[in-house]
Amino acid sequence: MGKVYLVGAGPGAADLITVRGARILGMADVVLHDALIEPELLALCGQARLVAVGKRCGRHATAQHFINKQLVDCARRHAVVVRLKGGDPMLFGRADEEMRALEAAGIEFDVVPGITAAIASAALLRRSLTLRGVARSVAFATRSRAPESDEIRAQVEADSLVYYMGRDSADAIAAELIAHGKPAHTPVAIVEACSTPRERHTSMTLDQMAAGAARAWFDPAQPSLLLIGEAFRALLEAGLSPEVRQALQAGRLAA
């Protein structure tokens, strides 16, 4: 039996993977990797057999049960198997299912954390997710499948709210948050392809996102993140005229 490593690749840039993650990639016999892993990261494991098992919204994807089976099969044939996941394996990465499959097969595994996209995006924006007197709580979320559930109410209560995989439902996310009490003028920062040469970002208000402003801006080929909350107001106001900025600060106008 070999050993499986669930390695966090980080947000994209090859030099943002951990030292431990890079070292294990250099030892790997086979690497099962997500779709969004940058080529520069895969170059760190040039000796390994590469197997693409990623999932992309709206595209053909490898079923999770088949990924689990591949991990088990590879561990029975190779000494070092890496499951390379974007960001951190333990956040929206289906890591639990893979770990339970490995446990059931009696295969040893280890988890190597990675920098998740929310933290990397906050660094790119130069805006902390927490801010004294403004943001004391942070929630990482995906869109709830039940708009009236407690999940939505909990997300509304978070001072800083980060949505993963929210590109295709950004309008609906904003509308649901407003309907459950989030102020319509709440700032939203959107980051695409964080830490890669393609990275870019924009800002808008929650009601603008509900009206389709984000949909018009997105590049559907790039991964994106929605960061919502007063901690990002300075980004929103930076490009506004003094009159509009003053009105926003007084709470009289939604950008």
Score class of each variant (00 low, 15 high):
140 F>N: 11
200 R>Y: 03
210 A>H: 14
178 I>M: 13
174 A>E: 00
175 A>C: 04
162 V>N: 00
134 V>R: 15
206 L>Q: 03
159 D>Q: 09
195 S>V: 00
163 Y>D: 02
150 D>R: 05
117 A>F: 07
176 E>K: 00
195 S>T: 15
132 R>K: 10
125 L>S: 12
160 S>C: 13
180 H>L: 07
229 G>R: 11
175 A>V: 01
158 A>F: 08
140 F>T: 13
215 R>A: 08
207 D>Y: 09
162 V>F: 01
118 A>K: 00
149 S>T: 09
184 A>C: 09
194 C>R: 03
201 H>A: 15
200 R>T: 03
127 R>A: 12
188 V>Y: 09
169 S>H: 05
140 F>R: 15
192 E>S: 13
128 S>G: 14
131 L>S: 12
134 V>N: 11
192 E>C: 15
237 E>K: 10
200 R>I: 01
215 R>I: 02
211 A>G: 00
202 T>H: 03
202 T>Y: 02
150 D>A: 15
181 G>Q: 05
181 G>I: 04
159 D>E: 12
184 A>L: 14
231 A>H: 06
162 V>T: 02
234 A>I: 03
226 L>K: 11
138 V>D: 04
173 I>E: 00
152 I>W: 10
164 Y>S: 13
207 D>E: 14
145 R>V: 00
171 D>G: 00
167 R>I: 02
227 L>N: 05
142 T>V: 14
128 S>R: 05
210 A>D: 09
207 D>V: 14
152 I>P: 02
168 D>Y: 07
144 S>K: 06
181 G>Y: 04
135 A>Q: 06
130 T>L: 13
119 I>T: 14
124 L>M: 12
146 A>I: 01
152 I>M: 14
214 A>H: 02
184 A>H: 12
144 S>Y: 10
152 I>E: 02
173 I>M: 01
162 V>S: 01
193 A>P: 00
123 A>G: 11
131 L>C: 15
161 L>S: 03
226 L>M: 14
133 G>T: 09
129 L>V: 14
220 P>Q: 00
242 P>E: 05
202 T>M: 10
220 P>A: 03
168 D>M: 09
221 A>W: 04
242 P>A: 07
219 D>P: 07
143 R>N: 03
133 G>H: 13
188 V>H: 05
